[in-house]
Amino acid sequence: MAAESGKIDPMHQFMIEPLFGQGWSIAGHNIAFTNSAMWMVVTLAALLIFMIGGMKRDLVPGRWQAAVESFTGFVSGMMATNIGPEGKKFTPYVFSLFMFILIANIMGMMPTGVVGVHPFTVTSHLTVTGVLAVISFSIVLVVGFWRHGFHFFSLFVPHGTPGYMIPMIFVIELFSFLIRPFSLGLRLFVAMTAGHILMKVLAGFVINGINAGALTVAIVSIPSFILMIGITLLELLVCAIQAYVFALLTSLYLNDAINLH
């Protein structure tokens, strides 16, 4: 794939390269500081700067404070509508999740390539989205069993199920419940990966078309470039939507655990 399209490899953007600390390890596992780790830290720094701007705590908010408050209000409103007053305890987690995914997604879209720094989308990695999904799912499990004990299993038997259907329904519901962390993690990973590959492939068409001559510029590069503008806007939308979906599904799963339907 890479060889035919010149030097442009759409998968190269997902490569993890250690920056320093290649020798660091914990219990035999290498924990080198990679470009992925760097972009996580960039995300953290960006989020921190964004939040500090909202910490003026004025009675009449400025623009920045209003922006920060609209994000916190969005998440706490989502928790209130999906879970109710008890959801307030979990707002810090869902807010952290939402903001981390949103900013990591958007950081991966930043045109830092023009200054020689390859953008890296942290959330396009299965290990990252998987860990986030597992954390969400673990919280759901812990909260569910903590609050309801073995009564939590009644989640798998909806109200009004006929007696003879219970074994089958139980298995189906259990299966759909256990599949949640996978769907949660895979959805974000696949959405970010597919979008970024599409963007790189189209960018490759533009560059290779220009290299191949005037005719290919007209029939390949220009249409690809126009398409790319649209795809880029769509990707920015997907960045926000995927962060929202991840946070929304986490809050819905938490609602199952807290309120048992």
Binding site: I16, S25, T127
Partner: peptide, 9 residues
Amino acid sequence: TYASQIFWL
């Protein structure tokens, strides 16, 4: 890379 990814995440 999983160890590094998980650790830093």
